[in-house]
Amino acid sequence: MSLVNPSSLFHGSPVVTRSPTLFNPTRKSIPLSSSSISAILTKFKEPQSESPFDFKSYLLEKANLVNQALDAAIPVRDPVKIHESMRYSVLAGGKRVRPVLCIAACELVGGNELAAMPAACAVEMIHTMSLMHDDLPCMDNDDFRRGKPTNHMVFGEEVAVLAGDALLSFSFEHIATATQGVAPDNILRAIGELAKCIGSEGLVAGQVVDICSEGADVGVGHLEFIHLHKTAALLEGSVVLGAIMGGGSDREIEKLRRFARSIGLLFQVVDDILDVTKSSEELGKTAGKDLVSDKTTYPKLLGIEKSKEFAKKLNNEAQEQLSEFDRRKAAPLIALANYIAYRQN
């Protein structure tokens, strides 16, 4: 049931016609929500490293730039209700791991932030859509996300579904119309890559197998299939899109693809561990829901300690894929892999 009074879809203001929204780095960045990056990072203890790279400053800077670009890309316009719903979830904060991975991969292969930003925003829009749909009563039926009521609790189920659909379609439009300084062939390749990683061979495949597996007795191989598609596919797409937009070679793109698959699976293993070791307040979302729904998770199959060992193995495998790149340029991706491995929410 909606918690807001459903006002008319139009407020009487003239409809704004769309032109490509460009990222303006001089524009003042909008603040993140209560689950801000700075608050998140206070709980993250980066492992000791010989590198002088300041990961916390890097992530805070990039995340705020992504937030600014997302704010510019999705202004409030008619129909107001749908755009408010889209903005409610997209600008609700979060770690911005996927867009930052996209930017870092682009910079690693010689590209720049501006070339990657539309693709970085697109993957965050799609990630947000997946969370909005995942939270629906017909899926996981969650009431809270990122410390706030979920989209359908505020705007109603119908609007939440449509807002998610709108984010999905707009993500492709945004890459096509807002990307600058990138060869058209690379833009086309990136759009194809993104479509594949979220379709019936990617995110959707993982989600449907996950739904069909509830209550079933499944093994580690089955669980890995779910999470390589449901979670890792979009992380893989984020990194690969960045590498494509940066003009990376086929060899560089494939190395980064393997890196991303490992951290994608790592992300889910850590998520499973946190679900049974942290509170809802610490996570900013409902804790223990996997246990309540009798969902198969890595801790359930392997136990907590074996799951932690598996996470460490995945992190090592991911970082091995970066060994041929310049260590200084790879520092953000190395730090992001460690962040995913050692995060606390």
Rank of each mutant, 00 (worst) to 15 (best):
L3W: 15
S8M: 10
F10Y: 13
H11R: 15
H11F: 11
S13A: 15
V15F: 12
V15S: 13
V16M: 10
V16S: 07
P20W: 11
P25T: 13
I30E: 05
S35K: 15
S36L: 11
I37K: 12
A39R: 15
I40M: 15
T42D: 14
T42K: 15
F44K: 05
E46R: 09
S49W: 14
S49Y: 13
E50F: 09
S57N: 13
L60F: 09
K62L: 08
A63M: 05
V66M: 08
L70C: 15
D71G: 07
D71H: 13
D71C: 09
P75V: 14
M86K: 06
S89Q: 06
L91N: 10
A92M: 10
K95R: 08
V97Y: 12
L101R: 00
I103G: 00
G111H: 03
G111V: 09
N112H: 08
E113T: 11
A115D: 02
M117L: 06
C121A: 01
A122S: 11
V123E: 03
T128M: 00
S130R: 02
L131C: 02
D140Q: 04
N141Y: 02
D143P: 04
D143Y: 11
R146I: 01
R146F: 03
G147E: 08
H152F: 14
G156Y: 06
E158R: 13
V161P: 03
V161L: 14
L162C: 14
G164T: 02
D165S: 03
A166Y: 09
L168R: 04
S171D: 06
F172V: 12
F172I: 09
I175E: 08
I175F: 10
A176K: 13
Q180T: 10
G181R: 10
P184M: 11
D185Y: 00
R189G: 00
A190Y: 04
I191G: 00
G192P: 01
K196H: 08
I198F: 01
G199L: 04
S200A: 11
G202M: 03
A205E: 05
V209F: 05
S213L: 02
E214N: 08
A216P: 00
A216I: 01
G219M: 05
H222G: 00
E224M: 11
E224T: 13
I226Q: 05
H227E: 04
H227P: 01
H229K: 04
K230D: 00
A232G: 03
L235S: 03
L235N: 07
L235H: 07
L241V: 09
G242M: 11
I244R: 05
G247N: 12
G247T: 09
S249H: 01
S249E: 05
R251M: 04
R251N: 06
E252Q: 14
E254P: 01
K255A: 13
V269I: 15
L274F: 13
V276C: 14
S279Q: 09
G284W: 12
S293W: 02
Y298D: 12
K300T: 06
L301H: 08
K306M: 00
E309H: 09
K313G: 05
K313Y: 11
N315S: 08
N315G: 04
N316Q: 15
L322G: 06
E324D: 10
F325N: 13
R328M: 01
R328I: 05
A331F: 13
P332C: 06
N338L: 07
A341P: 04
Q344D: 09
N345Y: 10
N345G: 02
